[in-house]
């Protein structure tokens, strides 16, 4: 697309999307590090990961401030309007992903000394899947690729299935040994956090799809795995 007559406007939009990608990169690293810390029982890495959440929060606040300014000064229209609103919404999704990753990291310490190795392997696989979803959706944002966004959007079903099977697995552990209930509860929350991160990725996919095509994807049309009862 050609540049704006006011070149500063084009620059502001480019910087904005670069910053969203940078923010997404930090969020992705947080998911990966939180899962690595979990599997390795690495308390130091967990603590460092939790601390990075502040970084994401600050980036979101900065993006929001600049978007307010941009809306007031430039009054963007059409594709520009969609780009600016998308950036605002994606940044808040990424901020939530940061929060959830931090929460995972904070559960590493309480799990120290418990023997949940089997579950951790499954958890790591789910974490990889979720982080891959985020990676793809960030690619779709950076390349304005609506098809890729659509693929991520449909791919959340797999994450949900993963969550359901982990839920069942942890539940079994807890039923077999009541001493596992404390650790099991933490593992349940971790799995739920990963599942929520997956949902935020599909939200981002919807935003990207709207930004690129101008049409809305309806959540109700998305393929979903049925929720397990207790």
């Amino acid at each position: 697309m050609t540049s704006h007559i006011v070149s500063a406007f084009s620059e502001e939009l480019e910087t904005l999307s670069a910053d969203i990608l940078r923010m997404g990169g930090v969020a992705e690293t947080m998911i990966n590090d939180a899962c690595r810390a979990l599997v390795a029982g690495n308390a130091i890495l967990a603590e460092e990961t939790a601390l990075r959440d502040d970084e994401v929060d600050e980036m979101e606040a900065d993006v929001e401030r600049r978007i307010m300014r941009l809306l007031a000064l430039r009054q963007p229209m059409a594709s520009d309007l969609r780009a600016v609103v998308s950036a605002l919404k994606v940044s808040s999704e990424l901020e939530r992903i940061g929060d959830l990753s931090k929460n995972i990291a904070k559960r590493v310490a309480p799990l120290d000394g418990t023997d949940v190795r089997g579950v951790l392997m499954s958890m790591e696989r789910m974490g990889r899947g979720v982080s891959h979803q985020l990676h793809l959706v960030l690619d779709s944002y950076s390349d304005a690729d609506a098809q890729l966004a659509l693929k991520v959007w449909s791919g959340d079903e797999e994450i949900d299935q993963h969550y359901n099977s982990l839920f069942r697995e942890v539940l079994t552990y807890m039923m077999q040994d009541p001493r596992m209930i404390g650790a099991g509860a933490h593992l349940m929350f971790i799995a739920k956090n990963l599942e929520r991160i997956g949902d935020h990725c599909t939200n981002i996919a919807e935003i990207v799809h709207f930004q690129v095509t101008g049409t809305y994807l309806t959540s109700s049309a998305r393929p979903k795995a049925p929720l397990l009862e207790g």
């Binding site: 704006h4 594709s79 309007l81």
Partner: peptide, 19 residues
Amino acid sequence: VFTNPTDDRTQDYITGRFG
């Protein structure tokens, strides 16, 4: 027209890309 114009010329004009 202002959120999702169908023609590229409309898009360019309302986003300030030519005038």
